[in-house]
Computed example of a mutant assay.
Amino acid sequence: MMGGPDFKVLIVDDHAHNLYTLRTLIQKHLNATVLEAASGREAIDLTLNHRDIDLIILDVQMPEMDGFQTASLLKLRKRSRDIPIIFLTAAFKSEEFQQRGFAVGAVDYLLKPIDDNLLINKISTYFRLIEKERSLNRELERKVAERTAELDEARQYLENIITHMGEALLVLTPEGEIKITNPAACRMLGYREEDLLGLSIGDVFEEEGDDEAGAFMGTWLEALIRTGALAKIEARFIASDDRRVPILFSRTAIKDTDGNITDIICIAKDMSGYIRIDNDTVTEATTTTNAARTTEADHEQ
């Protein structure tokens, strides 16, 4: 016996004797479940109730709804449109009628009286093709599942980095609206995440020397468009309680293939408690100390 226990065949004929003959033949040579329909309407109803039909063997000559009409309706329905159909007929032997069968979606056309070996061989061939397709689908599903797991792992890894990084992260739209943030930014600004998202960067940012935070979307944006990034600058965050939090701030533009900015990544380090020392002052202090040491040495001599 060929085939697998998962194969299901629907045979359609208005004569009970023909259904019995087909069912007996298939069950004798193939390991498949056989469903029977005595009319085209019954066949359509069965395809609605059984989603796992693999093959339909359809008699052409039937009253009320013939095989051509039945096949046409089956091909219109999403659930049954891809089921292979083998036509059986004793009357329509001309090439014209065979072409009509192929036109309505038949994959094969057999003449009555049926050659048992020929029918079984054809059904077996379709079973092998179906099993190959199933195998390919299983392999594709496996690869998709593996890739999905890899992407989930990578996403979780990045989320952990963003969540635990010490610097504040703000991802903006090109218009300056906050679309992504991290816990460090929420703590630094004193906002809940849901309250921070959707705010304009001008609501929480004040650049050194600028009276209005709206300057954030001014000349620096033009520079981002030209270069894609700006060096770190000193600025201030405006916290929810109106405190000014000194920060060291950097901005990077993400662009699409056409060069348009899609996102702006902003990273800020809290500089509270740090003291700025001018380089010239450091140099002068070092020079004074060295001069004092030279004087002390002269006195000892």
Score class of each variant (00 low, 15 high):
107 V>I: 15
128 R>T: 15
130 I>S: 12
103 A>S: 15
135 S>V: 11
139 E>M: 15
101 G>C: 10
189 L>N: 08
149 A>T: 01
160 N>R: 12
141 E>K: 13
114 I>R: 00
155 R>G: 04
131 E>Y: 07
121 N>Q: 14
133 E>R: 13
158 L>D: 08
189 L>E: 04
122 K>E: 12
167 E>M: 07
178 I>S: 02
148 T>S: 08
90 A>M: 08
183 P>E: 08
135 S>G: 14
117 N>R: 14
150 E>I: 12
90 A>C: 06
125 T>W: 01
116 D>E: 14
94 S>C: 03
171 V>H: 02
119 L>Y: 11
125 T>L: 14
164 H>T: 15
132 K>L: 14
149 A>V: 09
104 V>P: 07
107 V>L: 02
157 Y>V: 00
107 V>R: 08
157 Y>H: 00
118 L>V: 12
150 E>S: 04
114 I>T: 07
120 I>G: 05
125 T>K: 12
127 F>L: 14
113 P>Y: 07
161 I>M: 06
176 G>Q: 00
139 E>R: 15
106 A>F: 12
146 E>K: 10
100 R>H: 11
93 K>R: 12
130 I>H: 02
152 D>G: 03
158 L>A: 04
152 D>H: 01
136 L>C: 13
113 P>E: 01
155 R>A: 11
95 E>R: 07
118 L>N: 07
144 V>E: 08
99 Q>F: 09
125 T>S: 14
113 P>M: 05
102 F>A: 06
176 G>R: 07
106 A>I: 02
135 S>R: 13
186 C>L: 07
114 I>C: 08
128 R>Q: 15
174 P>K: 00
129 L>I: 15
100 R>I: 08
107 V>K: 07
181 T>A: 03
124 S>H: 08
134 R>G: 14
182 N>Y: 08
155 R>F: 02
129 L>G: 04
119 L>Q: 05
101 G>D: 01
150 E>Q: 01
119 L>W: 03
100 R>P: 05
111 L>T: 02
163 T>R: 13
151 L>I: 05
163 T>F: 03
160 N>D: 13
157 Y>Q: 00
144 V>N: 13
189 L>Y: 04
96 E>G: 06
184 A>E: 06
185 A>W: 10
170 L>A: 08
177 E>D: 11
120 I>S: 00
183 P>H: 06
185 A>Y: 05
164 H>M: 14
129 L>W: 04
170 L>Q: 00
165 M>A: 13
124 S>Y: 01
133 E>T: 15
157 Y>P: 05
